[in-house]
Amino acid sequence: MWFRVEPGRGVPIYVQVMEQIRRAAASGLLAPGEQLPPVRELALQLSINPNTISRAYQELEHEGVVYTLRGRGTFVAAPASTLTKRERLHRLDEAVEKLFVEAYQLRCTPGEVLSAVEKKVREKNGPGG
């Protein structure tokens, strides 16, 4: 499995790997229950430190994106299954915070922000959702 690793981006490499696995899992490119490559194999393929991959897997496990079976490997978890409601809301809150910073810099009115969010929700959930 190939991931884009860009040293010199100012973002730690383990975070870069995490982002890409998270995105692939969220979009369904990685199916729940699918096994991720072993740490050493992935490290060799991406030519990065194995500890970096371990760290990424650990953090992802902490977030509930993947789970590890001792001696068998790391697998993609079912979406959000392991997160508590409080954690989920906290995470959502962080994302909204970012949205507001962006909106503030774009000089958007609160109404514009709200209607954009509503539009997105309607799109994703389809009619009647």
């Binding site: 690793v5 040293p7 010199g8 490499i13 030519s47 990065i48 430190n49």
Partner: peptide, 8 residues
């Protein structure tokens, strides 16, 4: 330094 960031 990019190599260093990869493996150190």
């Amino acid at each position: 330094l990019q190599d260093v960031e990869r493996i150190a």
